[in-house]
């Protein structure tokens, strides 16, 4: 289980290595706190769906697997959406349609249909936690780059006298607006992936190229 957890953090990091679940990354990475909320939501949904699919594996016939998986993920995503609307209306407005869209997130489908098929519920839970945390960290990285460059701020949770926003000197007066637009998301993600590929051992990079 520990091994399954660690794999998601580095070697098979869903975002950096395999580029799974692009939809929320592209959409919510303009502010750090939104990205954090989205990452946590995805982590929770992934853990529930993966464990449930793994526990149900003997009861669900192969051709209904996708159906059952989307049903579980859909219930969790609806619940998350409604909870957010009730307790955090501001956040819910900003994340908008992307919380219900987690239902068909490719990371969740990939893990729940691929990995959970032949592993124990414990293993699947560990795998989901690893993948989810790896995804969360990568998402936070992208969001940090985008927010610093795009708006010159770092948005955190307001506590006490702290307003929740740190302004980066220099950049907050004249930010690079392009980065915070939708076009900038693709660009930042492309450059981040290139830098990540460059930092990785060449053997793996070659394999990736053959596949792509």
């Amino acid at each position: 289980m520990i091994q399954a957890f660690r794999k998601g953090l580095a070697d098979e990091n869903p975002l950096c290595v395999r580029l799974l679940g692009l939809c929320p990354v592209l959409a919510v990475s303009a502010r750090l706190i939104d990205a954090f909320a989205m990452g946590l939501t995805l982590l929770a949904i992934l853990a529930i769906t993966n464990t449930a699919m793994s526990a149900l594996q003997t009861h669900v016939p192969g051709r209904f697997r996708v159906f059952v998986c989307t049903a579980i993920a859909g219930s969790c995503a609806s619940a998350a959406d409604l909870l957010m609307q009730a307790y955090m209306p501001g956040l819910s407005d900003r994340l908008g349609i992307f919380v219900p869209l987690l239902t068909v997130n490719s990371l969740i489908l990939d893990r729940a249909l691929g990995f959970a098929k032949d592993s124990t519920p414990g293993m699947s839970f560990g795998d989901a936690l690893g993948m989810g945390t790896g995804y969360l960290l990568a998402l936070l990285g992208i969001a940090l780059i985008r927010e610093i460059l795009g708006s010159g701020t770092i948005t955190l949770v307001p506590i006490g006298g702290f307003s929740g926003t740190i302004e980066v000197p220099g950049l907050s007066q004249s930010p690079i607006r392009l980065v915070s637009l939708s076009a900038g998301t693709f660009l930042v993600l492309g450059y981040a992936k290139a830098v990540f590929d460059m930092a990785r051992p060449p053997a793996k990079t070659n394999r990736e190229e053959d596949k792509a």
Partner: peptide, 9 residues
């Protein structure tokens, strides 16, 4: 480093 996915993005 840009070959494949990065240049597409």
């Amino acid at each position: 480093p840009f070959r494949g996915v990065p240049i597409t993005l």
